[in-house]
Design a protein around this nucleic acid. Structure first.
Lengths: 230, 230
DNA sequence: GCGCAGCAGATTGCATACGAAAACCTGTAT
DNA sequence: ATACAGGTTTTCGTATGCAATCTGCTGCGC
């Protein structure tokens, strides 16, 4: 047949994505957007029906949701949406900080000129979103920049761990926190310069400060929100 | 009936541990002790038969083995025992180092007098194993000491992450590496003193040095082993 | 001899059904 | 009100079937 794709399939061969992964992502989305509330009991059969799949992929997705901290799996009882505490949020933030600090060091050691150019592009995008007062755009640009720095560290272990921790942090803080704004992006600029120079120590130190400021910023917002509630 | 246990069941009630977890542990054991070799294709049906269970718990165990880095799960092809590279081992080591450094800080902030006493006990056990030239005992005492410091940080996220990373590190280095011996335990002693004083900065710094030395030590052994092979 | 199409076997991924054990809920008797 | 008994719900494991896909082999044409 003429349209035989032959072996010369382009790009990342379209592997049939396992259904369990689609279920996983669907459930994460439902948890993040609040459709599934913390503490809620997740019944396999209900989820399966709701998503139009059988129970098996749901079970497998729940397994991974547990190891990633989204749900608690109590033996013989089932899955419950994880209830994040303020304490846990603080811990997540501090762990993310040390991991990102480490990745900044790696980035400084491995970044090429092209990589640095890409960093500046992402920085520009962030500044633009900032100028446009586009909150969602700011968050996305920030995630893209930090994510790219993680990539640059060329450390696969970090590349696994940071996104996991990061998503859980964002889940907790997203509903209440606003992006930090101008200061953060000034710090980014300094950091990019240090990475461009290949100065590992300075990059690390700058990232440490940056994440520290971010942590403080969020802590204040949490405190304010808590005070308001009581 | 007389023997009704009533509600006053003591301690961590012996929940019927899910079978999938037993399978998970059995497979980790088989991978660690070399029965299942890196790169080997794991066929669900075979494992199920060999372990005397059905395919489902095996599948679920394989899921978790993947997220913990023990196997690679290729869609529509199955599970393959992960082949650790030297590069990845180095990265695992560096990530473990930063996480443990962070946990040392937490430990200094939270340790009680009893906790410190327990640390000295574990230290004694290590010294005793060292004197008896009991390699396995040394490794166990070392793991116990580091594990307890992680606990003391009172950081659940660290308590999740460190053991995961740690087991993978040990898998890679165990066959070739010997325990470091006396120097390591001197460093432990200093570290415990710093924790006892609640000196977070110093604890952090001492742990950083300690893990750095360990990393260097292992790297040299790897280099030696590699040189010997070629 | 070499490359490639096509076929057969093996394996995964998912669906379905079923039974046992545990946990939860409810109504009743003390 | 409290304790208990019984029924319901839900998880957990098993068994089985089947479609899609990957692997490896065979055999054909060049």
């Amino acid at each position: 047949m003429r349209d035989t794709p032959t072996v010369a399939a382009r790009g990342p061969i379209t592997r049939p994505a396992p259904l369990r992964q689609a279920v996983y992502e669907a459930l994460v989305e439902l948890i993040i957007n609040g459709s599934l509330k913390p503490g809620q009991h997740l019944v396999e059969a209900e989820l399966a029906e709701h998503l139009g799949v059988s129970r098996q992929p749901v079970r497998e997705a729940l397994q991974r949701l547990q190891t990633d901290g989204w749900v608690d799996l109590r033996p013989a009882q089932g899955a419950f949406v994880h209830s994040p505490t303020e304490e846990e949020a603080t811990q997540l933030l501090s762990v993310r900080a040390v991991l990102e600090t480490h990745s900044a060091r790696g980035a400084a050691l491995h970044a090429t000129e092209q990589d640095v150019a890409r960093l500046w592009e992402l920085q520009e995008a962030g500044i633009a979103a900032l100028a446009a007062d586009d909150a969602r755009g700011i968050v996305e640009a920030n995630a893209a920049l930090h994510g790219f720095i993680t990539e640059l560290s060329r450390n696969k272990v970090l590349a696994e761990l940071i996104p996991q921790v990061d998503r859980r942090v964002r889940w907790y803080y997203m509903p209440i926190a606003k992006p930090r704004g101008k200061d953060a992006w000034n710090e980014h600029a300094q950091l990019i310069e240090a990475i461009a120079e290949g100065d590992a120590d300075r990059s690390e130190e700058l990232m440490r400060c940056h994440t520290q400021h971010t942590t403080d910023f969020y802590s204040r917002q949490i405190a304010a929100a808590t005070a308001q509630r009581s």
